[in-house]
Simulated assay, not measured.
Amino acid sequence: MIGLALKLLRDELSHYVFQNKRPTDSITEDDIILHNIALMESEGQDLNNKIVITLVNTEEESTLKNGRHTSKTISGVRYIEPPVFLNLYILISATLGQDLQDAYEFALHRLSLVIQFFQAKKTFSVKNSPFTTISSDNNIPQEIKDELRLNIELYTLTFEQINHLWGSLGGKQVPFSMYKVRLVKIHENTSDEAPLIEEIERTENSN
């Protein structure tokens, strides 16, 4: 589900950036990618001149932690662990083109488009995202598609947090923004079923 959530955002963002890029900008929809930005300077990795979406942290949504463990069925009671609702912290980086004279300016403009896109649209589902390929993927169950509902908000870091973040990623800082993606639902479709208790027997101890 985490991969699908980020793919949904990538598909929609890719279309928006490509449609609103500058005429002289050579970026394509395939240049908005899901990748680990920490590998930007690794040999064999070409992450230059792209918009890179990286998952940097996950946390459980504590307000939804205590869900119901049982549900009634025709034959008894079904016991199931409640789903985990996650908040995802994603880093969106506009990397620089090595051969472009105005690489930094292009990166800043692309980052502006990213912020502009998420400012205009904060809630995502498969139904309200016409440019994602998830909707036409028959390998994904319809139930999963219906459950995919994301709320996006800009997450501001302090200078100390920024320094620690890029230090842990091991790369040079590029123009970026961070977003908190709320309520990614994770659950396993397994459960135990027990019959209803219809009668209680009492036994008396004789001394």
Rank of each mutant, 00 (worst) to 15 (best):
L86D: 04
I33R: 01
T70R: 07
E43C: 03
E81M: 08
I74Q: 12
F18S: 01
Q19K: 12
S75Q: 13
E59N: 03
L39K: 15
S93R: 04
L64V: 00
E59F: 04
E59Y: 00
I37W: 05
K21T: 02
F18N: 06
E81W: 04
N57S: 10
I33E: 05
N57M: 09
S75T: 12
P23W: 07
K50Y: 00
N87L: 04
S26Y: 08
I33S: 01
R68A: 10
G44Y: 03
D31Q: 10
P83K: 15
E60Y: 06
R22D: 09
L64S: 04
I53R: 01
S26T: 10
Q19S: 06
N66T: 05
G76L: 04
T63H: 09
L91G: 02
S26E: 09
A38G: 15
I90T: 10
S71F: 13
I80L: 06
T28D: 12
I90D: 02
I53C: 02
S75H: 13
D46M: 05
F18H: 05
T28W: 08
Q45N: 06
H69V: 08
K72D: 10
I80E: 10
E59S: 07
E29A: 10
R22T: 02
S26N: 12
K65W: 00
I33V: 14
E60L: 09
D31T: 01
Y79K: 12
E41D: 14
D25F: 07
I33L: 03
H69N: 12
T58D: 04
S75D: 14
I92M: 13
N36R: 14
I80G: 03
I80H: 11
N66E: 13
S26M: 10
T54P: 00
L47K: 10
N49S: 08
T73R: 06
S42L: 06
G44M: 02
T70K: 14
I32L: 07
I53F: 03
K65T: 00
Y89L: 13
P83N: 12
L91N: 02
L88A: 01
F85Y: 15
V52Y: 14
K72M: 11
L86F: 11
I27Y: 03
S93W: 03
N57R: 15
A38T: 05
P83E: 13
Q45V: 08
N87M: 06
T28Y: 06
E61G: 00
Y79S: 05
V84E: 12
S62I: 11
P83W: 14
K50T: 00
R68G: 05
S93N: 08
I33H: 07
P23L: 04
A38I: 02
F18R: 06
G44H: 07
N20H: 15
I53Y: 04
R78G: 00
R68W: 11
I92D: 08
V84H: 12
V52T: 09
D30G: 03
D46H: 11
G44D: 04
V52P: 04
S71V: 07
D31A: 11
E43R: 15
L47F: 12
E43I: 09
G76H: 12
E60C: 04
V77C: 01
D30E: 12
I33G: 03
R68P: 03
S26H: 13
S93M: 05
L55D: 02
N48K: 14
L88V: 01
I33M: 04
T63R: 15
E29P: 01
I32V: 03
P82Q: 08
E61F: 08
Y89M: 14
Y89S: 09
N48I: 05
L47R: 09
S26V: 04
